[in-house]
Computed example of a mutant assay.
Amino acid sequence: MATESIRLSARDWALAALRAIADGGLAAVAVEPLARTLGVTKGSFYAHYRTRDELIDAALAEWVRTHGDGGLAEFAAIADPERRLRELLTTVVESVRPLAPSVHLSLLGDRNDARVADAVREVNRARLEFLTRTYRDLGLPPDRAEQRAHIAYAAILGLLHLAQTDDESRRPATLSDEAIAVFLP
């Protein structure tokens, strides 16, 4: 039952939309079900957005902000490139949850939507630039750093994909250690 005492921000709605996208892509973003999930009326939505498309735009912008450059800022602040890469890989591998939906992978199903394509491109750009810069800081020449970044990023996306279809019992306990051994030159 909706209660009017709950005050949601536009960001609360955008985060709820991201959870819906993770579960079912853009088609899962619908005002009435989101309002029910959030425990509010549709009026709360209209206090922040005029249309579902505005909400999707806000959700995608939030995802880019938190998973692109902004999401990498704490790692970028680490001066030692070996420690930077080690902490990033450990965080990424340990944050991948079995059978947990992924916004990134769900968005790929909607990749023909220009807004989605732009958001995914921006997040990919930020992540690849970060990894390339880190590998260069580790002493790899520019082309090898870029190649290594692409392979490391592909492996990270592959882990996300496997986690969506695999359970915890098949995941090696030392996966983050192995990722570090493989991707740290």
Rank of each mutant, 00 (worst) to 15 (best):
N124C: 10
V96R: 13
A173F: 04
A126D: 13
R52Q: 12
R111M: 11
R144G: 05
R171V: 14
E74W: 07
L138C: 04
T132Q: 10
A119K: 13
L99C: 14
E82M: 00
P101N: 03
R125V: 11
T90E: 02
A35W: 01
A59C: 05
Q164Y: 02
A152N: 03
A58L: 01
G109R: 08
I151P: 10
H67T: 08
V103R: 12
L26S: 04
V116T: 02
V103Q: 12
V123Y: 11
R125W: 09
R115T: 00
A14H: 09
D118M: 06
A17Y: 09
R52D: 11
L140N: 12
V31H: 13
V120A: 07
L85T: 03
E62S: 13
A59V: 02
R50G: 13
F75G: 10
E82S: 00
I21K: 08
R170L: 14
S106F: 05
V116H: 06
L184A: 00
D167N: 09
V92S: 04
L108A: 05
L108W: 05
A22P: 09
Y153D: 15
R65I: 09
R97F: 04
E54H: 08
S9Y: 08
V182M: 03
D69Q: 07
E168S: 13
V92G: 03
H150G: 15
A35H: 02
V120W: 08
G43L: 12
V40I: 11
P81Y: 00
L105P: 01
E54P: 13
R36W: 00
K42R: 15
A79D: 07
R7D: 07
R144D: 13
I156Q: 06
A28L: 14
L184H: 00
H104F: 02
V120C: 01
V103A: 13
D113Y: 04
E74P: 08
